[in-house]
């Protein structure tokens, strides 16, 4: 397959469009999760989504995004409630609680997924792709849904930008001026779960957390303004979705998810190295110039003294 034929295919165009919007919305939502130090929560939510989605399929027998969302939200709520219950009522810290819950939910999910695959219900094709994603399996209907939900997610983030910003920077102050922080907190979780669910087909549950967090972390390197960071993270996510989908459609049977994540990681590495001010190269340069400036000043001092 060559490049031109890939772009000419209307089906691929749709899939590309869907992956890009998915990357955009996850990048935007991921910014707030990252700044609130809830990166791991994204990971837990995406792994928790698997049993929810499998149960939704087992109960309804259809692969409808709406039911998947319902299942994933219920599983996500159960997971977050368990995590906060453990952290609040035992001496276990949040990172350990996340580790426990994440693996338990994922384990249950794998058991259910295997069960579905052995049940010969006929309609299960594509479910095995939930782990690592297979963008090519998306049909136009899926892309419509993904695109629609992505637009809603981004719109909500724009609408609640001021509130999300305050909540991310200073939750105590936000609560003090009367924002319903607990409600907003859960609302943000809901947005994250939704992003995970619409990403299941293209990226898969295992790696969806990376699409939430990596573009956000990469974007942080380029700017000191939140709205720019959100924008850059969205763009990085969209690029990752685009590149990953193209790469997977060029080579047969390559799952999309890992490729999208690899693309995001390349952007991340470029950001860490070459971003202005915060990047490693820029910092080294600055240190070097300060050093040499200091040296010349010191040298002059020595010369003057020896005279």
């Amino acid at each position: 397959m060559n490049w031109i034929s890939v772009f000419a295919d209307p089906n691929t165009q749709w899939i590309l469009f869907g992956s890009m919007l998915l990357g955009l919305s996850s990048g935007v939502i991921g910014c707030f999760a990252y700044l609130r130090k809830q990166s791991l929560m994204g990971d837990a939510l995406s792994h928790a989504a698997l049993p929810g989605v499998c149960l939704a399929y087992m109960v309804t027998g259809t692969k409808s995004i709406f039911f998947f969302l319902l299942g994933a939200i219920l599983a996500g709520i159960l997971a977050t409630v368990s995590i906060s219950y453990i952290t609040r009522n035992t001496r276990i810290k949040q990172d350990s609680a996340l580790g426990i819950i994440l693996t338990v939910f994922f384990g249950v999910g794998i058991v259910l997924l295997t069960q579905i695959q052995h049940s010969h219900s006929g309609n299960q094709s594509g479910l095995d792709k939930f782990l690592f994603g297979h963008a090519a399996s998306m049909i136009q209907q899926d892309v419509y849904t993904i695109a629609g939900i992505s637009v809603v997610l981004v719109a909500l983030c724009i609408l609640f930008f001021k509130e999300f910003k305050l909540l991310s920077f200073d939750q105590g102050f936000a609560k003090g001026i009367g924002l319903p922080t607990i409600l907003l907190d859960q609302f943000m979780m809901l947005l994250m779960v939704t992003a995970v669910v619409i990403g299941i087909q293209a990226v898969g549950v295992v790696l969806m957390a990376a699409l939430l967090i990596t573009p956000a972390v990469a974007a942080r390197y380029w700017t000191e303004k939140l709205h720019v960071m959100v924008l850059v993270a969205g763009i990085f996510g969209a690029i990752s979705g685009f590149v990953g989908t193209i790469a997977s459609s060029m080579v047969n049977n390559l799952p999309t998810g890992p490729l999208i994540v690899l693309a995001a990681t390349v952007l991340f590495i470029i950001s860490v190295l070459f971003a202005p001010n915060r990047g490693i190269v820029a910092k080294a340069k600055l240190r070097g110039s300060v050093k040499s400036d200091f040296k010349t000043v010191a040298h002059q001092g020595v010369k003057e003294k020896s005279l």
């Binding site: 700044l35 130090k37 001021k162 910003k165 305050l166 991310s168 920077f169 200073d170 105590g172 102050f173 001026i177 942080r220 700017t223 000191e224 303004k225 939140l226 720019v228 960071m229």
Partner: peptide
């Protein structure tokens, strides 16, 4: 109580007082 590496500037933080 807050992470000062948040991507924002001094004026923006003060503006939060108006929220």
């Amino acid at each position: 109580s807050v992470d000062w590496d948040f991507p924002t500037d001094a004026l923006d933080v003060v503006m939060m007082g108006r929220y």
